[in-house]
Amino acid sequence: MRFLKLTAVFLLIAFQSFAQPQGRDSSLVSRHRPGLFWYNTGWRPARPGKLRKYDRLILDVTYNQLMNSGSIKANPLRSFGCNVNTMWDIPITNGNTVSLGIGLAYKYQKTGPKGLFYADSSNSFTHFYADSGYTGFRKNTFGNHILAIPVEFRFRTPKWQHFKIHLGGSIGYRLQTFQKVWPEHKHGIKDKSLPDRNPLVYGVHLRVGIRNWALFADYTLAPQFKSDKSDKINALAFGVSLSIF
């Protein structure tokens, strides 16, 4: 339900972003900026011919999957997360058809794997135990709160209604790894004590879209747990990106 509400808000925000300003030729360079803040030019009006900058505040809504030693683990539909990216758009070409994006991102990765993570008896490494029947609990979630620095090369066609491709990667820090379990007829129990959480996060991502909408994919190369004895867990995410500014 929360995801549906969030999607509805995104659609309302971006509804008018597809509309072309009245009387304007799409082949001309627009003085407007794509996204929610089309008419925001700061304290002063934009100078004619000023180079436009794009994709400075990006929201990603993602469906997340866990990969165990390269095999994708089935996750229920509630395995949704989100990213908030604040970026600098640094033009490389005169028409800003190629640019460099760099900034700061917050990532919320949430999955609902069919099984639980357990520490070993010495509390030094972590294993995943599948539970296809959900014995003893009615649902569970597993996730991370991450702070990261994304860097990406951005390629776009000229003019305001452009086609774009972003190729990039990120490096960051896991602020928290958690597992939450809902036993039958009881409130959820949250566990943040898995022993060998890997604090280092790095991965690659891709966006392909038109103007302020894009399809998004992200793969976390860094393993979830750092012990060689732990299961090799990585995160894979697909979703939709909305550039508000």
Rank of each mutant, 00 (worst) to 15 (best):
M1V: 13
A14W: 11
F15K: 14
F18R: 12
A19C: 12
Q20S: 11
Q22I: 13
S26V: 14
S27M: 15
L28I: 12
V29T: 13
S30Q: 02
P34E: 11
G35L: 13
F37C: 06
F37Q: 00
F37D: 04
R44F: 05
P48H: 04
P48M: 05
G49P: 01
K53I: 11
Y54P: 13
D55Y: 06
R56C: 11
L57H: 02
Y63S: 05
N68L: 13
N68I: 15
S71M: 12
I72W: 06
N75H: 00
S79T: 01
F80S: 02
V84S: 00
D89E: 00
P91V: 05
T93Q: 04
N96C: 05
T97I: 03
S99R: 00
I102Q: 02
G103N: 04
L104W: 06
K107N: 01
K107C: 01
Q109S: 14
Q109P: 15
Q109H: 09
T111A: 06
G112Q: 03
P113N: 03
G115K: 03
L116P: 00
A119C: 05
S121H: 13
N123I: 12
S124M: 07
F125N: 03
F125D: 01
F125Q: 01
T126P: 08
T126H: 10
H127T: 10
H127P: 06
F128E: 07
A130D: 06
G136C: 10
G136M: 03
F137C: 01
F137I: 05
T141A: 09
F142I: 10
I146V: 14
L147T: 07
I149R: 03
R154S: 07
W160C: 13
Q161A: 15
F163Y: 15
S170T: 06
Y173F: 15
L175K: 03
Q176M: 15
T177Q: 12
Q179R: 09
W182A: 07
K190H: 08
K190D: 06
K190R: 15
D191M: 04
P195F: 06
V201C: 11
G203L: 00
H205A: 12
V208C: 12
V208H: 04
V208R: 05
N212G: 08
F216L: 07
D218Y: 03
T220R: 07
Q224W: 10
Q224K: 07
K226N: 05
D228M: 11
A237K: 13
A237W: 00
S241V: 02
